[in-house]
Nucleic acid binder design. Structure first.
Lengths: 191, 191
DNA sequence: CCTCAATGCGGAGGATGCCTCCGGTTCTAT
DNA sequence: ATAGAACCGGAGGCATCCTCCGCATTGAGG
């Protein structure tokens, strides 16, 4: 499991100087908040202001918007990867379901996830690979146990869940219900 | 069915003068193309250029970006509403499924749909109401026939399908497969 | 403690896009 | 043919993205 975590490569280096490190962290925090509120088109000038730094500082740390998005995206990804180990001991279907709901929670805390999933970059692929490495054993186990349809793979599943998790629902209740329906779709086979 | 079509109210008036009507149509066409390529953040100046008109003309016809998005969104909506009548004679599950795949096709031709579904405006509500009026009888019929889970409604279903239809898939094959899984999720009940 | 080089800073300025408004043009009803 | 309502394009103001430069700060080494 530790091996899975290590595969997430880091695109941006956290600076060496203490002041720069503080600014880096402040920018990440501000970006997380701004993206959660306004999506990934949130104004970078606004993010710099929120962090209490100049726009030059933002660009020095994150040369493009995409790099900033990815940095936010990777934040917390390790926790999700580790969560797979936490549920591994449960019965197959239960384990997979629990992990998928963790994935949905992760998605809820950052709107960038859905948009990032559609991006093609080394960093995103690295994270995606890590998620897939974490979740795939759970899926295969549930398939081997005859609890999940055989005609799907981890990429299908992640895209299905991510797509639904990205919808803005009027109520948490409905969100829960519709996501449950999507997850239930994993169970049925046309056989 | 004709009553359902009539409930779609029109937010923008098509102009009276011949030249203005031509420009209006050209703008709609250009917007459809630009949105399909770049999503709803596509440059309005680019759209005006594509249509061969000045930016002032774009704003005169569509006072805000939202109005333009909605105009594109409604385009073709009537066809989808009518499609419900075309499948009504089929067996319950078949009818619903056929219509949902029509919905997916409609979504594929314009990326704006997914984003529009998350917007709150009179026009969007009007279209959504029309879709729901069209699709709901099909859903209820399939539920009455015991072919669809009882714990869902047309709003759930539309959001589920729209969410998945909005994902960018690397292949049409995968898209097909994952959407089929989502639709299969309608069938299962926890009972 | 001091020095100095590497690291890091903010914001002015150029480019682009959104949006408004005004002088000029075109269309159509009479 | 004419008048006036409808319509036009694009300059200009504002916001945001992004770069670059003169100045400031940090921290390692002596």
């Amino acid at each position: 499991m530790s091996a899975a975590v290590d595969t997430i490569t880091v695109a941006v280096q956290r600076p060496h100087r203490a002041d720069a490190r503080r600014n880096f962290d402040a920018l990440l925090t501000a970006a997380r908040t701004a993206f959660a509120e306004n999506g990934t088109e949130a104004s970078l000038e606004d993010i710099a202001r929120r962090a209490g730094v100049g726009i030059g500082t933002l660009y020095r740390n994150f040369p493009t918007r995409a790099v900033l998005i990815e940095a936010v995206y990777i934040d917390g990804a390790e926790d999700l990867v580790r969560a797979a180990a936490e549920v591994a001991g449960l019965p197959p279907w239960e384990a997979l379901q629990r992990w998928l709901w963790r994935f949905v929670e992760y998605a809820a805390t950052k709107k960038v996830l859905i948009e990032a999933l559609n991006r093609e970059s080394a960093m995103v692929r690295s994270c995606r690979d890590a998620f897939y490495n974490a979740g795939e054993p759970l899926l295969k186990r549930a398939q081997a146990a005859g609890e999940v349809r055989a005609d799907t793979d981890i990429d299908d599943v992640m895209r299905l869940i991510a797509g639904v998790a990205g919808v803005t629902f009027p109520s948490a209740e409905q969100r829960q219900r519709v996501l449950a329906m999507a997850i239930d779709g994993l169970r049925l086979s046309r056989a």
